[in-house]
């Protein structure tokens, strides 16, 4: 705000009536004309500046814009939404996909355990996750990260995920980390709009069509389990997994959060998660925590099991153990 009292034309104009005041009927002067011109120019420039936004209506349909939260959709709404999403997948990826919405199996609570004595860090699980869950191929996205840790320390600070050599190394052990499906999930409390929540079987899911992409949940998760879609995922048509769940592996839109969902489109139909099937060392054990005789419960009862960062009170449903 630099006043310039010496500019006499301005000064003259100053004494004139202001056209902005509707009640005062005053002919417009040079200044007001200039102001109008300035405002018009400003608006035009603004329009030009935000012109990249005009590409959005192509990608975001009115239906999508107005779509309600998953929990508020009736079965009928869901059918329409799924059809729309299937059409979009056809459009954008050229793939025929089916989107389903398997519900939690009543009475089932999922648990997962990894035998760290067996895991050799070969990363087959990461790759399987990438393929199964229609992850962005450009960045080889995966919900799993495998840490190579030094024997004799549980300190992740001495771990690395970027190791690139023959595994296993003699002085190392390998620890895959993915969403721990916390019983008390900080990510869910963080989300301002309930775009992520815990289902009855313990799986924490994200409604990719409700998330606003604030990434607060990503900051809240203590296990680096969440992934953000920094751009629209690229997947070659022939690599698209057509068996898709609305809350799980359907192709995610740009700008939203995603995370491991224990392959709920598989596990809620009784099948094993993709990472478990891919594991070449048999280090992974999956099952129903509520069934006393399940494999996972055998592990919990017979192995000395621990969870990551127990002190945070997140109560993971994901366990680790060593063969003694």
């Amino acid at each position: 705000m630099i006043a310039d009292d010496n500019s006499s034309p301005e000064r003259q104009a100053d004494t004139d009536k202001d056209w902005f005041l509707p009640v005062v009927d005053q002919p417009s002067t040079r200044r007001t004309a200039l102001k109008t011109a300035g405002a018009a120019l400003g608006l035009a420039a603004f329009g030009k500046a935000i012109s990249p936004l005009w590409s959005i209506p192509e990608n975001v349909s009115v239906d999508e814009f107005l779509q309600q939260h998953y929990k508020e959709l009736s079965d009928n709404d869901k059918q329409k939404v799924f059809q729309r999403l299937e059409a979009e997948a056809k459009d954008a990826y050229g793939a025929e996909v089916t989107i389903s919405d398997p519900k939690p199996i009543p009475g089932v609570r999922f648990g997962y355990a990894i035998n760290l004595s067996k895991c050799n860090g070969n990363g087959a699980c990461m790759e399987a996750c990438n393929r199964e869950n229609n992850h962005h191929r450009g960045v080889d996205q995966s919900y799993i990260r495998v840490l190579e840790m030094s024997k004799g320390s549980m300190d992740m600070e001495h771990g690395t995920t970027t190791y690139d050599h023959t595994v296993p190394q003699d002085d190392k052990f390998y620890m895959p980390v993915q969403c721990q499906q916390c019983e008390n999930p900080p990510c869910v409390s963080a989300c301002p709009i309930e775009a992520t929540w815990q289902e009855d079987d313990g799986i924490v899911v994200v409604d990719y069509n409700w998330c606003i992409g604030c990434r607060y949940c990503e900051a809240a998760c203590p296990y680096h389990a969440r992934r953000f879609n920094w751009e629209q995922p690229e997947i070659p048509t022939d690599e698209v997994n057509p068996d898709q769940g609305y809350l799980s592996n359907r192709i995610r839109p740009q700008g939203v959060m995603e995370k491991c969902h224990f392959c709920l489109h598989r596990t809620r139909e009784g099948r094993a998660p993709a990472c478990l099937e891919a594991c070449s060392t048999g280090a992974r054990v999956f099952g129903d925590l509520n069934a006393p005789d399940s494999d996972i419960n055998w592990v919990l009862k017979n192995k000395r099991v621990f969870v990551l960062k127990e002190e945070l009170g997140t109560q993971p449903n994901f366990f680790y153990f060593f063969d003694s």
């Binding site: 050799n120 990363g123 996205q141 595994v167 048999g282």
Partner: peptide
């Protein structure tokens, strides 16, 4: 999985590394 004559699980070479997202600067280790 185990060769009965040499049952130790074979060494492997990891082939897949998630990168999260590309950046100009190389991923740090």
């Amino acid at each position: 999985c185990h060769n009965p004559h040499a049952p130790q699980f074979p060494k492997m070479r990891p082939t897949f590394k998630p990168k999260d997202r590309f950046l100009e600067q190389p991923r740090t280790k």
